[in-house]
Amino acid sequence: MTTNSLKPRGIIASVEIAVYVLTTLFVFISKTRYRIEFRKQGGWVYLILFLVLRITSCVLVIVLELTSNPTIGLVVAQVTLTAIALTPLLSAAIGFLKSAAKFGTGQDLPRFFVYALRLSKLALLAAIVIGIIAGSDLANGAESVSSANNGRYLTKVSALILLGVFVSICVYTAWFLSHGNSLGHFRTIVIGVGLSLPFFLVRIIYSILSAFTLSGSGYFSGGVANKFNTINGSWPIYLVMAVLSQFFITVILFIAGVAMQKDIPQRYQNEQDLENASKESAPDSSFSFLLRRLR
């Protein structure tokens, strides 16, 4: 098997791997330092998921560029990971907003808001499933015209779903900011999500342009119209609109998440300790009320 040298996308992928491995390390250092409980804060879980997916995707980019005759399975994996890359970041933004409400107000969100957030998550799940199917069809597009057509159609659907979720996050952020006084210090994470929205918009525009300019057999067809192609389009456009926008989103959410963690009262982080202590002593009514509020 002969090998090739890295092209610009492969070099970009190499830098991404180094950056995102360090970012993952910082996340786990922050977990230890600030006692972050990932299972109670969905934003961190989705942020880590994005980092893992992105590192894996970058590794596949390098392998594809160094391999003269890559297998169809390798191509499908790369195309699929590229198609679903943005969904964990959108989920992370939603998760951090929910955490801000939980720790900032100590109260449950309005029911309609809970349903709206759940609907957004279901939409993102649908976008992932559609993206996986679309990636598989597009990777096989050179062998089947029907697969290429179906893949292009599903890619457009997935991109439009992401746009819809992005609009909903804008609405959620505006609503949280309008109730900023009740959030206290946790307004910081909401502001962080707000600052990430322009970069989300750039990334989603790139996804939409990529989806609606696909032609021929899919990702592997050439032409000027495919300069937004995520696989073999213009690498400067890819660098600015896809890679850098995702990086800035990650950095902003990470910094805002750490800032939020610093503001979480120690009583929330030691909730289990308080419950254990309550079993060993006879708490008065005020302490019982505190425990109920903490739950």
Rank of each mutant, 00 (worst) to 15 (best):
F38D: 03
I208Y: 06
G73C: 02
L89C: 09
A100L: 10
F50P: 10
G222A: 14
L51I: 15
V63P: 00
L81K: 07
L125F: 05
L74F: 12
V240L: 12
L209Y: 04
R111L: 13
S99Y: 06
S120K: 03
S207H: 01
L197R: 04
G106M: 05
V59N: 06
F26H: 04
I252K: 04
Q246Y: 04
V27P: 06
D263W: 09
Y219H: 11
Q107G: 00
L162T: 03
V190D: 08
T230H: 00
V167K: 07
L109M: 15
F228P: 01
T71Q: 05
V114E: 15
F186E: 13
L74N: 14
L60M: 11
L22K: 01
N226I: 02
Q272Y: 13
D108W: 04
I231R: 01
Y238L: 03
G192H: 11
K102E: 11
T155W: 02
N69D: 14
V59W: 05
A127W: 03
S234M: 04
L195K: 05
L195T: 08
S147T: 00
K156W: 03
L49F: 11
I191Q: 09
I94L: 15
S286T: 13
E65W: 05
R33A: 14
Y115M: 08
F96K: 12
T105Q: 06
Q269E: 01
A92T: 11
F103W: 10
A18H: 00
D108P: 03
K98G: 10
A93F: 08
T82A: 13
F38Y: 12
S14M: 11
R118Q: 14
A77G: 06
G43S: 13
E275C: 05
C170A: 15
I231M: 13
N270G: 00
D273I: 09
S99W: 08
Y20R: 06
L90V: 07
F50A: 11
L160A: 06
Y46K: 08
F113M: 15
P110Q: 10
G95T: 12
L201K: 00
W175E: 09
Q246N: 13
I205K: 00
F200Q: 02
A18S: 06
Y46I: 04
L195E: 03
I161E: 03
N150G: 07
V61E: 13
Q266Y: 05
G164F: 06
S278M: 08
Y219A: 03
F200M: 11
N276D: 14
L90Y: 09
L177C: 08
S182D: 14
A225V: 08
W44R: 10
R54V: 09
P110S: 07
G10R: 09
I231K: 01
T3G: 13
F254Y: 15
G194W: 12
T23P: 00
F254Q: 03
N140L: 12
F247W: 11
W235G: 00
S14L: 15
L47S: 08
S221D: 15
E143I: 05
S221H: 08
V202C: 03
V202H: 00
T230V: 01
G223M: 02
L6I: 12
E37F: 07
Y46L: 13
I128L: 02
V190P: 10
S146D: 10
I11H: 10
L195V: 13
E37H: 11
G95V: 14
Y172I: 03
I204D: 02
V21K: 02
S210K: 00
S57W: 13
